[in-house]
Every structure is written in structure tokens, then in C-alpha cells.
Nucleic acid binder design. Structure first.
Lengths: 224, 224
DNA sequence: CGCCGTTTTGAGCCTAGTCAATGTACGTGG
DNA sequence: CCACGTACATTGACTAGGCTCAAAACGGCG
């Protein structure tokens, strides 16, 4: 069991969540906020006073075991809603990857909005169901796919969600984040990417975290 | 990668889903139905015309890879709602484990009920959020826990959900179902249970699938 | 240029998977 | 009633995919 690439989120947790005016700006329904790399929007166990919609950047929501092993349940990209809870506490923590902008909505308004605004209600409901679908897909990946298949699935999914030209993608997250999302180690992620590159399915662009998917057909075949 | 314990659900899929009167009985809001061991309530890709609530027995909802590898995303026990979808198709299949009774609700009524009945709306919403919470917890298990830890988590969860006396539990599902839920093989499930029994944490009762959790404290410690 | 965090690569090990055989429970029919 | 068949579960021996430990390479930035 690997314990190493836990980025103990506590690093940035500082004060219990409060809307700091220096980063907040009110909009019609919610409050626009900005966060920097690694900053925590909320932690596991925090009061679930707000839920969020991503405006720009990427968020990771994760859970930790007592010894620091980490699972990233989901990456949230522009447009995604997250942080809605059945109970009073957040059941996972959410951290910014790079610079992000989000809109925070008061949870207390949720019930009212659901009641009064059918369009909003549908948006919430289908966003939640969409998350559940993604979760079920991801459980299949975690429980039953081999490292290569995990990687192929991940790359195709990311390409679809954040590609401009549908072939080259600029990953916002580190190898460590990818590893903790796919249930692998950082070494296996790196090795698998190198292997895919040597096989000609992808190209690892020298510029940081950019990857070009040259052979999507072959990747889809790996995706099982 | 193991492919062996896929119970190709097609075995029972027969006709596209239709309410057979011989097993259906109308109630106030929905239609009560009964299914026998291994029968499929709906399959991946079927029209999502209905969603369900378990009355008695247990249901497994699962996904398959092309080569037969199977992941059981969730077990549904009495009271649980399942099968609600954002789109028009079911994204996973649902099969009866043993004999089950369910109430089927027409999906077309969902929108109306959500609109008109606040209590029902909250029930749906919180059931969905509850499923999402369970899914996130389970992803942590699948991605980051070792076999023993997976088993401990599973046993404690099942004990809580279906125990009468909170110590002895009668598992409704086979080893193969457990394996496909925990991302293990049937052999590892069996070995891990034997090992826990030898260590005195549990007792494997001779009567079929009953297990007694003698040392819950120790199990919780394993649960991490 | 030199530092630091991230990523890549290598060598060896270990957990869980594979393959195979045996054991157990249960239902059917002689 | 017991032999037989089938499905499920357990156990053993061996293998392999991914993890651990370790070191080198890379890239961004002061």
C-alpha cells in the first residue's frame, strides 16, 4: 500500500471555511470566488454551507485514509456542479488544482431554489445523476481494469471533457493526482504513459503536461 | 485480469422489459413485482421507463466489460431506491439475488411527483445523494484499500445494513458477487475470510452464508 | 547558474491473480 | 435411502502486474 503521494490537504486548510471578501465577488445567485494551487475549498467534515460551480480551472475532490492514502473521486471542470450533500457535513474535501474560479451557492437557498425554479431543480438533479453515472463508470475502472486500460480510459475521457482540438490535451493535474484518481502509483502512471508513447498511441509533448492522442482508435480498443 | 466469474446476465434477459401481469400487483403509486434468483430487472442500455424501490431481498447493480469482467457497483437492500437515470437508458443492469420484491415506479411520473410532492422530491433527492456518498466511499475502497481492509469494510457495512442482532449477519450474495463488488477474485475473498476466521475476528457459521462478527473493534481497526 | 519539485527509469519484491484440485451442500432420480 | 450431478466454496502451488525503494533526468524559476 502506498502512502507517499498524499498531499496532506491540511497544509492549506487554515481557518474554518469563511467567505473572504478579498477573493469573493457577488453575482446574481451566488458568490464568485478564486483559489490558488492546492488551496482547499472545503475539507471532509466541514459544514456543508455552500455548494459550487466551476467557472475556470480544475478542482479535485478526494478522501483520505488515516495513514494518508488518498483517493481522488472526481475532477471537476468548468460547468460542473459539486459539493451538494445530503447531510450537514461535506463527505470529501475539495482542492484547487492550479488557479480556479468558482461560484459558491448558499446551501440554505438550495431548497427554496429547488421548490421555485424548475429549471434550476432539473439542473441540480441531472448534475447529481451525472455524478453518479461517472462514479459507477469509475468504479468499473478501479475494480476491474488493468493499468493500461485505466490510462486509456482516463485520457479519452479527459480529451473529451477539456479538448479544444480533440487531439491535444493539456492536463491540469500532476501525475500524483492521476495516480490517486486511477488507483495506481505515480511510478506506474509514468511508466504506462511512457509505454503508450513508445507504442505510438500518444505523444508526450515536451511542454509540461500536454499529451497528444495520435491513435485514438487504439486507445479505444484498450478502453475495453 | 480475471474474467471467470462473470454471470452473463443475458441468461435471463429474454424479452425487452415489460410488466408481466403474473408477477405484478398494483399499489397506490407504483407496481409491486417479484423476481427470482438471477433474474434481470433491467439491463445496460434498456429503456429507463421505470425506477424501483426494494421491498424485500437484495438486488445487485452491475456493469460489464466486453470480455466479461464484472463490477458490482452497489447492493440494494430493502428501502433502497435505484434505477433513476438522467438519460433515457439504464447505464447499468440490475439483477435479483435470491427472491426479491420491488415496487416499480413509472419514470414518466417522476417529474410530476417531484413537482407536486415535496416529501417525495426530498426522498428522491436524498436517496440519490446517498447513493453518491456510498459510491465515493466505495471508490476509496476500490482504489486504495488492501484485500483485508476491503473485507473488513464490507462486513461492517453489511452488518449495519442488514443485521438483526448487529453481530450475526446472513449474507444474501455469493462469494462471486462479493468479489466483483470489492474488486477481488473469488479465491481471494475466500482466503481472506478464512484468514479473518483463523485470527478470531469473525466466525464462519456452517449454515450457508452466515457470518458472526466476534471482534468488531479489530475489524474497525482494519477498516482504516 | 543552481535549486527544488516533478517526472522518469531501473531493480527487486510482494500481494493478489491464475490454474488446478478437493471439499461441501443440495436437489434429483434410481 | 443413497448414488450422482451440479453449483458453490475452500485450499494449494505458482505466476505476474503493479508496488517499493532508489537514483537519475528534467524543467521552471529566482
Amino acid at each position: 500500500m502506498q502512502v507517499r503521494n498524499a498531499t496532506f490537504a491540511a497544509k492549506f486548510s487554515s481557518a474554518p471555511f469563511a467567505l473572504r471578501q478579498d477573493r469573493a465577488e457577488k453575482t446574481a445567485a451566488g458568490i464568485q470566488m478564486a483559489f490558488g494551487p492546492g488551496e482547499e475549498l472545503f475539507g471532509e467534515g466541514d459544514e456543508a454551507d455552500f455548494f459550487y460551480q466551476v467557472v475556470s480551472g480544475a478542482i479535485r475532490s478526494c478522501k483520505l485514509l488515516s495513514d494518508g492514502r488518498r483517493q481522488i473521486d472526481a475532477f471537476h471542470l468548468p460547468g460542473d456542479l459539486f459539493g451538494i450533500e445530503a447531510g450537514d457535513e461535506h463527505r470529501f474535501s475539495a482542492e484547487a488544482i492550479g488557479n480556479v474560479a468558482v461560484i459558491a451557492y448558499r446551501r440554505s437557498r438550495l431548497t427554496a431554489l429547488i421548490q421555485d425554479d424548475p429549471a434550476f431543480r432539473d439542473k441540480i438533479m441531472s448534475a447529481t445523476l451525472r455524478s453518479l453515472e461517472r462514479a459507477y463508470d469509475h468504479m468499473l475502472l478501479l475494480g476491474r481494469k488493468a493499468a493500461q486500460e485505466k490510462m486509456a480510459t482516463f485520457l479519452l475521457d479527459m480529451a473529451q471533457r477539456l479538448s479544444k482540438d480533440d487531439e491535444t490535451l493539456e492536463l491540469p493535474m500532476s501525475r500524483s493526482d492521476i495516480a490517486d484518481h486511477l488507483g495506481l502509483t505515480i511510478e506506474t502512471v509514468s511508466r504506462t504513459l511512457s509505454h503508450l508513447a513508445r507504442s505510438g498511441l500518444i505523444r508526450l509533448l515536451p511542454a509540461g503536461r500536454s499529451i497528444s492522442l495520435c491513435d485514438k482508435m487504439a486507445l479505444r480498443r484498450l478502453d475495453a
